[in-house]
Design a protein around this nucleic acid. Structure first.
Lengths: 344, 344
DNA sequence: TTGCACAATGGCAACGTTAACATTTGGGCG
DNA sequence: CGCCCAAATGTTAACGTTGCCATTGTGCAA
């Protein structure tokens, strides 16, 4: 039945592509009038518009993007380059990209960039061949050419990173502030110091969290204790928890992500320590939701959607005006939980 | 310093856009020869090519996508329409989209479609205005127009769903088979029946899992016990676990996702039941990795990347040939864990 | 020497759209 | 009744690329 329906369609709909010319001919007007109708120009008589619209419907006309872009010199599209698609927060960031793009009538073009070498240049040249007006690069680690990179002329480039770049706008979560919040929160609750479970050294955000932890402690006159280096997995958090369980000075642990925080709790428990009675634990990312329903992990929640929106807004919102270089950091929100107790 | 470098660039690089014409003029050849050089045609003398390439470098030429697409009538781009960006497995699917697109020299254009109304038509018309050669729609629930939808002429459309559509190719994970694997696995281990923690009824994949559970039990001559309806959260799994803890016939629980499975384990434990000693528990999705490091949850792992690749391959791989309608389901893999014990 | 094949390059047109300018039409007003 | 203005519509050209065909040059066999 369905195929019958298709056959009944006017022949023109099967043609390679229906252009303004076809519509103009059928409606008995000029191509320009068709174009004006498409853009709902006020200088076309309502009845003419209706006639043109009817012709468009009959032929199944849809404007050709290439012709339009060629004419306008704009694609109304923002490219997003990622070295890794998978990654904490990427889905939320994409939600943000899509939302902001939508708002401005833009589309998002997603590209995976090979990370060998891990350079902004490779992301940029990959994008240069695509129909985009601007680009966003999601950086996870330090590109080899970060200092020397120049964005393509005419291609507004926004980096998602906490590092500031002289020629590109940047936006990210404020990882330093995240650590500051956590450390001060724990100190306020009476802990004398805060131990830290870190992450692999190539992670930019992880390193920034480490800095924040260290410097905040120092700002409070506390010499940071030896940190334990993890690898983002709960497994490594478990080991860290076991190691820290024997340290009598350890009453509060700050883990660089939630998985390690959970692992750490298990590791502590396996050594007979209770959370939060004996030790307080705080994570980062709020990535696990309510998976352990009987105990809500204290953590920091980031608004990655907002980060994504800011990046695309910066490009799609500029609309011709010479865009200045801006740097934006959004603070996270500390989410209290059942894994911290007052130490006083 | 950086700004100085910029200023030193040849003027042409600042011009709106460098075209073949500019390159041709500088290299002292025709536009056609430039085009041929870009495509590395064998019928251009190597020294001519080099001269053209030098001109391209000097001017910072990059081919204009719009002109090219207009000429070719192809965009080399696949559109992806999603009603919800966030969702289990979407990141892996995107990884697959991007990988397959890359392979074929295609790009991915991502679009969020408003779900009001939740129709394929709205996804389709949203895409029709974008520069794409084909589209993928990720379906989470049943669109109102699933039966009557016709893809746009000339726009190959692939649906990510387990429902078969007469006019569109479809691809998804095999949720029925997933349940079959889990149920048979538990029965083989000596359990007399398998209890099920379900999910909201609007979820297509969830409903299919429910069917699989029910029918597999029946195929083994077992009348399915009363199911417990959850809402995907660990919280609801917790409640389900508590409820099932009092049921003496309940020795094996199959939860429709991992979060509920974890919650369920906690619920059982809160009622004094031990996993796997008293009750075996299996989840679905393998979404939580090793978060509870001392106990690996038995679950089913899906290869969403493969699903994504298949969808884009179907479109980008067709390349002009009239593509037949195909339906593909990929089975998941049961991952054994520490939450199931032999019941014999 | 002529003719021919082939390699290298150039000229032209067209893809679909729309900005800028040109033309027609109808109506109000002196 | 003629003039002018504004509304409505038409004409032209150009955006950048590339397929097709034409032209030029080069070497080789007849």
């Amino acid at each position: 039945m369905a195929s019958l329906t298709r056959k009944d369609r006017p022949m023109a709909a099967v043609k390679k592509s229906v252009s303004v010319k076809d519509v103009a001919r059928l409606a008995g007007v000029s191509e320009q009038t068709v174009s004006r109708t498409v853009h709902d120009s006020p200088s076309v008589r309502p009845e003419t518009k209706e006639r043109v619209r009817a012709a468009m419907r009959e032929l199944g006309y849809r404007p050709n993007f290439a012709g339009r872009s060629l004419r306008r010199g704009k694609f109304k599209t923002v490219g997003v380059a990622m070295f890794n698609i998978t990654g904490t927060g990427n889905l939320d960031r994409m939600e943000g990209f899509a939302a902001a793009a939508d708002k401005h009538g833009y589309a998002i073009t997603l590209t995976k960039v090979d990370g060998h070498p891990y350079t902004l240049e490779s992301a940029s040249s990959r994008m240069s061949a695509l129909p985009v007006d601007g680009m966003v690069v999601i950086m996870n680690r330090m590109p080899a050419d970060f200092g020397t990179f120049e964005p393509l002329p005419g291609m507004q480039t926004v980096l998602v990173t906490m590092l500031e770049h002289p020629l590109c706008s940047t936006v990210d979560n404020d990882q330093f502030d995240c650590s500051r919040q956590v450390v001060e929160y724990l100190l306020e609750r009476g802990h004398k110091t805060v131990h830290f479970i870190s992450c692999p050294e190539r992670s930019l955000s992880g390193m920034r969290r480490e800095e924040g932890w260290r410097e905040t402690l120092r700002a409070h006159g506390i010499e940071p204790p030896q940190l334990v280096r993890g690898d983002w997995t709960a497994q490594s958090g478990y080991a860290a928890g076991q190691a820290l369980a024997d340290d009598p000075t350890c009453t509060a642990i700050y883990a660089s992500n939630d998985a390690m925080a959970y692992g750490c709790i298990r590791g502590l428990e396996s050594r007979g320590k209770h959370v939060p009675e004996d030790v307080s634990v705080v994570g980062v990312d709020d990535s696990l939701g309510d998976i352990v329903p009987d105990r809500r992990l204290a953590t920091v929640r980031f608004d990655n959607k907002r980060v994504g929106m800011w990046a695309v807004d910066k490009i799609a919102g500029a609309e011709g005006v010479e865009p200045g270089v801006e740097h934006m950091l959004f603070p996270g929100v500390l989410v209290e939980g059942d894994t911290v107790r007052d130490w006083r």
